[in-house]
Design a binder for these strands. Structure first.
Length: 889
RNA sequence: GGUCGCGUGGCGCAGCGGGAGCGCAGGUGCCUUACAAGCACAAGGUCGCAGGUUCAAAUCCUGCCGCGACCACCA
């Protein structure tokens, strides 16, 4: 019973050498191009993964899509290059290194900036190759020889150049603003880097005593979710139209605990419906309060330090964390009899997208990019259609994002990143943004110092498409850019649409005067099997490296693409990967079959001597068209479905079966050769079409195939099939003939299965069809005989139903299988009756439709015609089935 | 609050105005010399609900229900 051992395979061992062969062949660098597309450049920039990151399913899908695009372009003869590189990922990397150092008892501040950056570099040297190796394991045909890095010297010059240019153009400015402060990372982060989460909280109602009673009123109740910030309150706001408080506006409050006298003022921002209609205003710790404070001219008092502990000057509260301060403040209000009441209240709270700490709106000096002049050209690029999104609807998301864009805080209080190239002279007040470091003040000669902050990682990421091609040193005239810019395709997930995609367009328009890419593919987000986003905490994540080990890179790639739809999310389905692995296996076996029957083969043009030959070439021609169309509309799911159906259901299920008798040892030599050549040709075209998705197995097969002297050495640069040239093979007659053959074979197999007749038992079969179809079928007699395993095959337009036979109707022909006594007539009668019922219902429906005046007068004539034909067919079928029933008694 | 996506056989999905399909799982029979990770055959769905447009609706429109994402955010 050991017949079917589980098949295990070492995919890495099979795939790695092929990858090395591609690399050594130089195909990963910009290809020279050939054929009619030789002059066309085709470039993709990879969304740079974090340098210390590891491959996740999002990368796996995204990189598969890009590799499919670039490989097809390469095979079409274009000058391709897929630019590879990694992102220094400021906060992410710094957080990791911080943690690593902490484990050794080292604090970043103790060792200082330079030593820390060195530690980051060490970290990068150690882990920076991981993800690139994983991308290689996938078989991605990136330009590994010219790997980029967002903190390489060249890239750094580009970043610096943009900062200096923007600074001198007045696009970059400095300001004291409320920013989202992460007290754990101790840095500002951008608005779109903050994540909101709903949390159960409370609405504390606090009594704020008036300095003097007004009309007998002694205090005012304010509602707040953050009582601890009251330490920094500098006012209380009410809506100017709120009659409850009209008499209080202009009076003052004695702020409890702090003893500060603060004004009651009116501002339309206040919603009278919410809480008590009176809002405590903390300009330094809330963006809306900041805005009101500006309007009312309030003081802005920071009560937290950079780690969100209460600053000096607040007595016992000083030094407390936010959480401690909250408790203490509430307790103190209670003690003073000023805690009115507490309500439950859910509200959304901002968290750091990196470390997940609760963010603190914090007043600080930061650098900003003014987006006013940048957003226009970026919107126009999409509105004009110069940049196309796929699916198209994402362009709306893009445009909406731009329309609502606010100035971008680009300074980060980190050490790992591009240090802001601003230089200051404390002696004379000189300052400027400079390309070269400035040690002494050019005005007064005093020592100059550089800004301590670094730039937001996205500030450098936005330069990716052109800084990787020489912009930093040569500007828009860089030779690479002149020849190969804009790039063709950018593929990414939708969550960085604004963060990255839009910013690249803005920066590119500014720096190069061009769009950065022509097509933006927004692929669906890969969700876990449970339909929820993959995450460590949920435990629904899947490791692509693990998948590749189990199913091969080809299996993973194909399986992922089959799941791509136009929707915004796809639920990861392991079975799809398994099915893809099985498909890869099927392809390999099909190839093995072909290569196993090569004796006597000599290369030559295909000879389409049989209907089966003409059929498979016709199907192949349609396949090339369909695959091309799917690529052009970026419909990768459709593309894989087409390939799957062709390989499995047409080539393997039928054509290879058709071929078996022709390849037998005693078969006629010339027909055998024709069949061999056809198989080789079809297989070669098919594996070319499949190569962009399943590069390894197709290359492996190609290497084993017989090739002519002028053939490409490797499949990776073999010419892509020409749909127009193949179109001449489309042959409706041949497709009809094979359709009938399949119908006959299927009918006989079905009868066998129903009555448990072994394939070894030969059966008499009678086929009745139109004369023209009879002629087509007659030519396929041999095929039918071998596939249906007949003893006697009668094909005639006037064939009779033999006694004791099972009848089947398919493809407009009647197939009678003589069952010679094996038949359970009752079962056969029941089956026919069921079929008859179904046909009768269908015919009734159609008859009603065709009896409808409205339909006859308004429907397109060809539709009416078609339905009349269908009804006639159905009536015919019904008559035949009734005849069969009568025959069966 | 705004924008968008999705609800089709047990599961995952395709189809997106004129005959309900695919893959997987499950059923039956097969180790047929390319493949048991396979082959053959059969079974399985009133296409979320309610209206509307149309001669014709899974497909278009409206509303509702359910799931989900993104953006904004009221202390």
């Amino acid at each position: 019973m050991s017949e079917h051992d589980t098949v295990t395979e070492d995919y890495a061992q099979r795939e790695r050498p092929l990858f090395e062969a591609w690399r050594e062949g130089g195909y990963f660098q910009r290809t020279p191009g050939f054929g009619s597309e030789a002059g066309t450049s085709y470039t993709i920039v990879i969304p740079p993964p974090n340098v210390t990151g590891v491959l996740h399913m999002g990368h796996a899908l995204n990189d598969t899509i890009q590799d499919a695009c670039i490989r097809r372009a390469r095979m079409r003869g274009m000058q391709t290059r897929w630019i590879l590189g990694t992102d220094h990922a400021g906060i992410a990397t710094q957080t990791k290194v911080d943690k690593h150092l902490a484990e050794q008892g080292i604090n970043r501040r103790e060792i200082g900036r330079e030593a820390f950056i060195e530690a980051c570099q060490d970290w990068r040297r150690e882990y920076g190759t991981t993800i690139v190796n994983q991308i290689a394991t996938m078989g991605c045909s990136c330009d590994y020889a010219h790997e980029q890095f967002t903190m390489s010297p060249e890239f750094s010059r580009a970043v610096r150049r943009l900062f200096v240019d923007w600074y001198h153009d007045g696009i970059i400015y400095r300001g004291k603003r409320i920013v989202n402060w992460c007290p754990s990372c101790t840095t500002a982060i951008a608005d779109d880097e903050a994540e909101y989460e709903d949390e159960a909280g409370h609405l504390w109602h606090l009594r704020y005593p008036l300095s003097e009673p007004v009309d007998g009123v002694e205090y005012l109740v304010v509602a707040t979710t953050r009582p601890e910030t009251m330490l920094g309150d500098t006012g209380v706001a009410v809506n100017p139209k709120d009659p409850r408080y009209a008499n209080l506006v202009g009076h003052t409050i004695e702020l409890p605990i702090v003893g500060r006298t603060i004004p009651i003022f009116a501002d339309f921002y206040v919603d009278s419906e919410f809480g008590t209609g009176a809002v405590k205003v903390t300009p330094a710790h809330d963006p809306n309060d900041f805005a009101m404070g500006e309007r009312a001219g309030l003081e802005k008092i920071n009560v937290f330090d950079e780690t969100a502990h209460v600053v000096e000057g607040y007595g016992a509260f000083s030094g407390m964390s936010r959480e401690e301060a909250r408790e203490a403040v509430v307790a103190e209000f209670e003690r003073l009899g000023l805690l009115d009441h507490v309500e439950d209240h859910d509200h959304s709270v901002m968290h750091c997208y990196r470390c997940h700490s609760t963010l603190e709106p914090w007043l600080s000096e930061q650098w900003f990019v003014s987006v006013d002049t940048l957003k226009g050209p970026a919107a126009a690029a999409v509105e004009s259609g110069r940049i196309a999104f796929h699916p198209e609807r994402w362009s709306q998301v893009y445009l909406d994002w731009l329309a609502n864009l606010k100035d971008w805080c680009i300074s980060r209080q980190l050490w790992w990143g591009h240090r802001i190239p601003m230089f200051y002279c404390d002696a004379c007040g000189w300052s400027d943004a400079c390309m070269e470091d400035v040690r002494t003040c050019p005005e007064c000669g005093a020592p100059a110092r550089q800004d301590e902050d670094v730039l937001d990682t996205w500030f450098s990421s936005q330069l990716w498409p052109f800084a990787t091609q020489g912009w930093g040193d040569y500007g828009a005239d860089a030779p690479e850019l002149v020849k190969h810019y804009p790039t063709q395709v950018l593929s990414t997930a939708r969550d960085i649409m604004g963060l990255w995609v839009a910013r690249m367009v803005m920066a590119s328009e500014y720096c190069t005067g061009q769009i950065p890419f022509e097509h933006v593919i927004i692929h669906p987000t890969v969700m876990g099997a449970d339909g929820k986003p993959m995450s460590k905490s949920r435990g629904n994540g899947v490791d692509p490296v693990e998948l590749m080990r189990e199913f091969g890179a080809d299996g993973m790639r194909f399986g992922l693409l089959t799941q791509v739809t136009g929707a915004q999310a796809m639920r990861f389905d392991r079975q799809k990967i398994e099915a893809a692995r099985n498909f890869a296996n099927k392809v390999r076996n099909a190839a093995r079959f072909v290569l196993m029957h090569m004796d006597g083969y000599t290369p030559g043009v295909p000879t389409l001597s049989t209907a089966a030959d003409r059929w498979i070439f016709s199907r192949l021609a349609r396949l090339v068209r369909a695959v091309d169309a799917a690529y052009e509309s970026f419909d990768f799911g459709e593309m894989t479905r087409e390939l799957y159906g062709f390989f499995w259901n047409e080539l393997c299920d039928w054509y290879i079966e058709f071929s078996k008798s022709r390849l037998a040892e005693d078969a006629p030599a010339d027909d055998k050769l024709a069949c061999q050549r056809n198989l080789v040709h079809v297989l070669e075209v098919a594996i070319k079409l499949l190569h962009p998705v399943m590069p390894f197995i197709t290359e492996e097969i190609y290497q084993d195939m017989p090739k002519t002297a002028d053939a490409a050495r490797m499949l990776i640069i073999a010419p892509w099939p020409d749909a127009d040239a193949l179109a001449t093979f489309i042959d409706d007659d041949a497709e009809r003939a094979v359709q009938m053959v399949c119908a006959v074979v299927g009918a006989v197999r079905s009868a066998r299965a129903r009555y448990g007749i072994s394939p070894k038992t030969l059966l008499d079969v009678h086929v009745k069809a139109e004369p023209a179809d009879c002629a087509l079928l007659e030519q396929q007699r041999g095929l039918i005989e071998s596939l249906a395993r007949t003893s006697e095959l009668t094909i005639a337009s006037d064939a009779d139903k033999p006694a004791g036979s099972s009848a089947a109707l398919a493809a407009g022909i009647e197939v009678y299988t003589v069952l010679a006594g094996h038949v359970d007539l009752d079962a056969e009668r029941a089956r026919v009756r069921k079929e008859l019922d179904r046909a009768t219902v269908d015919a009734e429906k159609l008859r009603r439709k065709l009896g409808n005046e409205g339909f006859l007068s308004k429907a397109a004539p060809e539709i009416v015609q078609k339905d009349r034909g269908r009804l006639a067919e159905l009536d015919d079928t019904i008559a035949k089935l009734q005849g069969q029933l009568a025959d069966l008694g």
